[in-house]
Simulated assay, not measured.
Amino acid sequence: MSHDAGRSEGHRSHRAGWLRAVVLGANDGIISVASLVVGIAASGAAKEQVLVAGVAATVAGALSMAAGEYVSVQSQADTERADLAKERQELALDPAGELAELTEIYIRRGLDHGLARQVAEQLTLHDPLGAHARDELGLNEILRARPIQAALASAASFAIGASLPLLTLELTPAGRITELVTINAIVALALLGGLSASIGGASLWRGSLRMLFWGTFALALTAAVGRLFGAAG
């Protein structure tokens, strides 16, 4: 029995879809709601007003993320279905031509003509549409578009991300809202960036710094705008 039998290689490609939606949602929830809270608090608004605005932004943002993600991923799913329908029709009208096309794909990948033809024939006997979907169109079950899953993941992660600045706001004295919400949001963004990079197999520090830079920029800009309008008022 091979020493490597049953060994998991730990590939991460299957995480790409849900990881993207979750990280995008949480990141957007933290940045947008924290920025809103910081900006409104910096303008001199009362704590109750800031809290109402933050809750409203959380609800609206979660719904917006869900709708946007659903429409985007559904468009991808529609394209995939159209490609599969076209491929199914071509297989019915010209099976010999499709077999030759599949053979040519395997030749370009390094197989000699005889072996490429044999592989194409075997895969065509087993599942011709699946073979063309995978090897000609680049579609597979792991990376297939799943709009409802993506929408729910985005909405939930947005709400979870937004809950951090809201909770900080609730527990913070009125005079320190801008300072503490900013600090907590920056720390959370750095942790989120590192975690997502680690799950995806990338550099933890690079992911943290990337998220930290853009989050700090957004928070600083909205705080400056809030102070500007508060002074003008």
Rank of each mutant, 00 (worst) to 15 (best):
G138S: 06
A156E: 04
F158C: 09
E136S: 10
R134Q: 09
E90T: 09
E87P: 06
L125Q: 15
I160V: 15
L164V: 12
L102W: 09
R144W: 00
G138Q: 02
P128R: 05
A151R: 03
A100V: 12
G114P: 06
L143Y: 13
P165E: 08
P128T: 11
I107E: 13
L102S: 02
E87M: 11
A145E: 10
T124E: 02
L123K: 00
A155G: 06
S163H: 06
L137E: 10
A96W: 01
E90K: 04
I148V: 11
E98K: 03
F158L: 14
E101W: 07
A159Q: 06
T124K: 01
A116G: 08
G110E: 08
L111V: 05
A116I: 10
H126N: 07
A145I: 08
L123Q: 06
A133L: 11
R117Q: 09
Q122G: 02
A131H: 00
V119H: 06
G130K: 01
A162Y: 00
E141R: 11
L125P: 03
A145H: 11
E87F: 04
H126P: 11
P147A: 13
I160T: 11
E104R: 11
A145R: 15
L99S: 10
E98I: 02
Q118E: 13
R109G: 04
R134V: 05
H126W: 11
E121D: 15
A100E: 09
L137I: 05
L139Y: 01
T103D: 02
L84I: 13
R144S: 15
L152Y: 01
F158T: 10
D127G: 12
A116W: 13
R146V: 12
G97V: 03
H126M: 09
R146D: 15
A151T: 09
I160P: 00
L84M: 14
S154K: 00
F158P: 01
E101Q: 12
S163T: 12
L115T: 13
A156C: 14
L164H: 00
A133R: 02
E121N: 07
F158R: 08
Y106D: 01
R109K: 15
A155W: 02
Q149L: 12
P147G: 12
R117L: 04
E121K: 03
A85H: 10
A159C: 05
H126K: 09
Q89G: 04
D94N: 15
L152T: 14
R117I: 00
Q122A: 05
A153R: 01
G161P: 04
L125N: 12
L129P: 06
A151F: 09
